[in-house]
């Protein structure tokens, strides 16, 4: 037991010694101090953190190649400006002058190294006139020149025909899929076409493809309401709402002064944001941003019913 106690005493004092000797070096490293053997003094340094996309690039600091590849941290840099160059084979190099401050970490974490020959691939298998992405489901929709809708994944694989649509003239400006992904609306200045996707494959889909005329104005944009049944129309003189059924009649929700209003639709809250001009007290016309809430289905239906009776 006695010898064990002696060993213990040795271990204890050894531990104390390691703590006393190790702590300054750990703390100086953490605080960014560098010890100079030449001057026997500590100098406060800074560091630079480099992350690239893709990783594994060579790092040159003042034209000297470092051992570490990205992601890399270069510590104990004396304050000053350094020339940093990052190179990766078959990618454009990145270079910049970097200012290092004492006790500070300079973070270069958003460096993208672009390939010299970008990876461009053709995805479509057939001729098409328009396409749009469904980011949520990672799918690409194509409007084919044969008046059919096609679908593939983001790599162009699993390319399949999923529906047809009625042609409108001139060609559609834009295709918009409904939030439930069962319908697609498309439009030009005076016509709105709607086609039901799930009606394809054996169903008498012709009855669920229709085109609505919009003679009263010029359509600029259309949006699906979150119920996937109503369409919100933005025309040159009005904001209107329309049921997605044959022979539906649009209902004006607001009249506009501006002929070509810009707008954005928040599908999550069913709210339309649009710019319109209004005359101010000084008699001049000013552009204002307006918010039209269509988030209550009941309210929307009541509004439509009321306006239909009128």
């Amino acid at each position: 037991m006695l010898s064990e106690q002696r060993i213990r005493a040795v271990l204890y004092y050894l531990s104390v010694l390691i703590f006393i000797l190790g702590l300054p070096s750990i703390l100086s490293s953490v605080l960014g101090y560098k010890f100079s053997r030449r001057t026997l003094s500590f100098t406060k340094t800074g560091l630079v953190v480099i992350k690239t996309q893709p990783s594994g690039a060579n790092v040159y600091l003042d034209n000297a190649l470092l051992n570490d590849k990205t992601p890399a941290t270069i510590a104990e840099l004396l304050p000053g400006t350094y020339h940093l160059k990052i190179e990766l084979e078959k990618h454009y190099p990145w270079a910049s002058n970097v200012a290092i401050e004492a006790g500070k970490a300079t973070r270069l974490e958003k460096i993208i190294l672009f390939p010299v020959r970008p990876n461009i691939r053709q995805l479509n298998k057939e001729k098409f006139s328009a396409f749009w992405l469904d980011e949520e489901k990672a799918e690409i929709y194509y409007a084919g020149e044969d008046n059919a809708i096609y679908r593939s994944d983001f790599e162009g694989n699993n390319y399949e025909r999923i529906a047809t649509f009625l042609q409108i003239d001139p060609a559609p400006v834009k295709f918009v899929a409904s939030p439930d992904r069962k319908k697609i609306a498309y439009f030009n200045k005076h016509k709105i076409g709607i086609t039901y996707l799930d009606a394809y494959s054996g169903q008498p889909f012709f009855s669920q493809q229709f085109v609505l005329d919009y003679p009263s104005g010029v359509l600029f944009n259309i949006f699906w309401h979150s119920d996937s049944y109503h369409l919100v129309l933005l025309a040159n003189r009005a904001v209107e709402v329309l049921e997605a059924k044959p022979e539906a009649v649009p209902i004006a929700l607001a009249t506009l002064n501006k002929k070509n209003p810009s707008c954005s639709y928040d599908l999550h809250n069913d709210t339309l944001y649009f710019i319109d001009s209004q005359r101010a007290a000084d008699g001049n016309m000013y552009d204002n941003l307006y918010k039209l809430e269509l988030n209550s289905r009941t309210t929307l239906q009541q509004l439509m019913k009321m306006q239909t009776h009128e």
Partner: peptide
């Protein structure tokens, strides 16, 4: 984000 201690 910017101090050496915060990074370390």
């Amino acid at each position: 984000q910017t101090s050496a201690v915060g990074y370390n």
